[in-house]
Design a protein around this nucleic acid. Structure first.
Lengths: 196, 196
DNA sequence: GTCTATACGCCGATAGAC
DNA sequence: GTCTATCGGCGTATAGAC
C-alpha cells in the first residue's frame, strides 16, 4: 500500500478493467481504489487520459506474457508421456488462471483498441500450440505436421474451454473438477498419440 | 425492412449489443439502425427503457434456445460411432455459430443483469453435456457415470473452445479449419471410447 | 501531488407538436 | 407513431488553490 501512486493506479485500474470492463470502470472508481479522493482529477497528474492508463497497464502485462516463454522447457526431466501431459495440462490451467484478468480485458468491449495486447496474446497462444505440435512430432516422428497440429489444437482447446466457460459465460457445464478433467484429458490425448 | 418497428428495434438492438456490447450501444444508434431519426426518442414509444428492450430481445432468444431441444435426437438413424460423432461435432459447431451473438451478449459487461438468459444458457449447455454422457453410457454400458461425464466434458469443451477463441479473443491458434478439426476430434473421442 | 470546483459532452429519458 | 426540443445525470478532463 506504500507503493508509488502511479503503480497503485495501474494495478487497481487493471483489476477493475478485468472485473467490470474498461468502459464500465470510471476514473473516479480507479482513484478511490488507489486511495485518492474519487472525482478529484488526481489520476491526471500521472496519466494524460484514461486510455493512456490502459496502455501503461497493457505494457506491463505484455512483459509478463513474454516472460512465460516457450512451453517446451516445462517438459524437461520427465520420463513417460502421461507424466509430461499431466504436467502440461496443470501448467496450462495455472497460466490461464494467472492471466484471467487479462483475457477478460481483451474480450471486453475493446474490439479494436489494444492491438498490441491482442497481438501478443495471439503470438503466445500460437507458440503454445506449435510447441505441443512439435512435442507430438518428437514423440511420433512419422506423424505428419497436419496431424500433430490437429491433435495439439483439439487437445489444448479442451483445456482452454474449461477455463473460458466460467471466465466469459459464468457457466460450468457438469461442473467437473480440475483433477478428473486432467486425468481424462491425459487419457484422451495419450491414447490418440499412441494410436498413431 | 417492412417489419413492424418494434421488431426492427429488437433485431437491430440485439445485433448491435452482440457486436459492440450493451453499454457501448447508444439508443440513438439503435434508432438509426432501425430506420428512425437518431436522437429522437422514437424508441421510447415501443419500450420503456433501453434495458426493457434488452429484456424483450432476451425473451426472444430464450425461446430460440429452448427450441434447440435435446441433443439426443440428432443421433437417430446413424449407424457407426464415428458417423454419429461427426454429426454431433458439426451440429454443435453450427449451433454455436447461430447463437454467437447471444454468447457475446452474455459475456459482455452484463455480469449480473440478464440472469434469465444466463440461466437458460447454463441449462442448455448442461443438457448437451449430459446428453453426450448418456450417449457414451449407452455405447459402453459398463462405463461409470464419472468416466462418461469426464469424456463428454473434455470432448465438447474442445469444440466450444474452437469457437470461443475467435468469438471472445479474436484469435485462432494455428488457424486449423473445421473439417480437419472435426476429423481429429472424432478420432480422439472415438479412440477413447473404444479404449474403455 | 492532491485537493476543490467546474467546464463540456454524451447518453438516457420525457414533453409536446404534428 | 414519429418528430423537435430539452432536461438531468454521469463521466472525462482541466484550472487553480494549497
Amino acid at each position: 500500500m506504500t507503493a508509488p501512486t502511479r503503480d497503485r493506479l495501474i494495478h487497481e485500474a487493471m483489476r477493475l478493467f478485468g472485473t467490470q470492463g474498461y468502459r464500465a470502470t470510471s476514473v473516479a472508481q480507479i482513484e478511490q481504489a488507489a486511495g485518492l479522493t474519487p472525482g478529484s482529477g488526481g489520476l491526471y497528474h500521472h496519466f494524460r487520459s484514461k486510455e493512456s492508463l490502459l496502455e501503461a497497464g497493457i505494457e506491463r502485462q505484455v512483459d509478463r506474457l513474454r516472460a512465460l516463454g516457450d512451453i517446451r522447457r516445462i517438459f524437461e526431466g520427465l520420463v513417460d508421456m502421461r507424466s509430461e501431459l499431466t504436467v502440461l495440462a496443470r501448467y496450462t490451467l495455472q497460466v490461464i488462471d494467472e492471466e484471467a484478468m487479462l483475457l477478460r480485458i481483451v474480450s471486453s468491449e475493446l474490439r479494436d483498441r489494444p492491438r498490441r495486447l491482442a497481438d501478443t496474446l495471439a503470438e503466445l497462444l500460437d507458440a503454445s500450440y506449435r510447441g505441443m505440435a512439435n512435442w507430438i512430432q518428437r514423440r511420433v516422428p512419422h506423424a505428419s505436421r497436419a496431424e500433430a497440429e490437429a491433435i495439439a489444437t483439439a487437445g489444448l482447446d479442451a483445456l482452454f474451454a474449461h477455463r473460458m466457460f466460467p471466465l466469459f459465460l459464468d457457466v460450468r457445464p457438469l461442473g467437473i473438477g480440475d483433477e478428473p478433467l486432467v486425468d481424462e484429458w491425459v487419457n484422451m490425448v495419450a491414447g490418440r498419440i499412441e494410436q498413431l
